[in-house]
């Protein structure tokens, strides 16, 4: 009777876990055809391990009970006490319960009603505190077992032969997916601007956007009006890393870390770097107060910015 109960519970658990497992594992493998067999094996393994664990738990409890009874018997013999018959009678009379009540009591909730508490109150009291001998709430036991099965399944899936990805593999997958998506998004878009094809914008709306980006990100080092601070002055005609939109774009994009200019390509879209670069070029010759002393060399355009000589034909500063 007791054994049957445990078996039933166990199969119910396994069944529910495998349903959950199927929905959980499908998105993991890139190709559902390939991963099929190992996954089935994995779940066979999980079930076997769960069964073993379950049996081991039952066994442990039995051994414990046995050892305790032995201890009692030994002590009784030593003290010449006669042991009464094992009083393991069920407290609740199940007669009269219909099927659903029996199921509820078995698997869900089985508290002895308050008015019959006297039947299960333990004889001891601790500073007035008494204890009832209610069964473990069955749903609680089920939940405990479920979490143990989940734990085993988790370890098998990720470590003991399952097909779970390591966190590094997860990362590589994430990056690969993103790369494809970005390529798709950039295809034929204005954002495809880079240092080889960027042109200075002149439209006032776009320059206004550039100004906003400048105020949000650049003023800390280059000053409110481009007069310079930690970073160089934008209003004079001297440039450290070359003037002109292509050089400015490149400096913004990659930065010059050894001199303190950080790379912005993770924070600004290419079109934003174009806008802010174009805005910076408009600051030339504005003569703000407190200008920083010139740094670098005087920049003159030796090649027309629109020239399409290819990537390597970037304008270079004059000596």
């Amino acid at each position: 009777m007791k054994k049957k109960k445990y078996l039933l519970l166990f199969f119910w658990l396994v069944a529910s876990v495998s349903i959950w497992a199927q929905s959980a594992t499908t998105p993991a493998g890139p190709d559902p055809q390939v991963g099929q067999l190992p996954q089935i094996l994995t779940w066979v393994l999980i079930c076997a391990a769960a069964a073993l664990f379950f049996v081991a738990m039952l066994y442990m409890i039995k051994v414990n009970q046995f050892l305790y009874k032995r201890a009692i018997q030994l002590e009784a013999r030593l003290n010449n006490v006669n042991l009464p018959e094992d009083a393991d009678a069920p407290v609740i009379d199940p007669a009269g319960d219909d099927f659903w009540t029996r199921m509820r009591k078995k698997y869900w909730e089985d508290a002895v009603p308050i008015d019959r508490e006297a039947d299960i109150i333990l004889h001891h009291d601790y500073d007035g505190i008494r204890e009832l001998d209610n069964r473990l709430p069955p749903w609680w036991v089920n939940m405990f077992i479920l979490t143990i099965v989940y734990g085993l399944g988790y370890m098998i899936y990720y470590h003991w032969g399952g097909s779970g990805l390591s966190q590094t593999q997860e990362y590589e997958q994430e990056v690969a997916v993103a790369k494809k998506e970005i390529a798709l998004a950039l295809a034929g878009k204005a954002n495809a601007v880079d240092e080889s094809n960027v042109v200075a914008l002149t439209e006032s709306g776009l320059l206004g956007e550039g100004e906003l980006i400048y105020k949000g990100n650049c003023v800390a080092c280059h000053g409110q009006k481009g007069e310079g601070g930690v970073g160089p002055n934008f209003t004079d005609e001297y440039w450290i890393h070359g003037g002109g939109i292509k050089n400015v774009f490149k400096t913004i994009k990659y930065g010059v870390p050894e001199k303190g200019m950080i790379s912005w390509q993770a924070q600004l879209k290419p079109s934003d770097m174009q806008k802010v670069g174009s805005y910076i070029l408009t600051l030339g010759g504005t003569n703000p107060p407190n200008p920083k002393a010139p740094q670098g060399v005087i920049w003159t355009e030796t090649v027309a910015p629109q020239d399409s000589l290819g990537k390597d034909a970037l304008p270079s500063p004059t000596k």
Binding site: D127, G128, R130, L132, D133, N134
Partner: peptide, 17 residues
Amino acid sequence: YYFLPKAANRPVYSYKL
């Protein structure tokens, strides 16, 4: 386990638990 049954003046629900 001490103060709640004391304050509620009720026996602890389940010793096994």
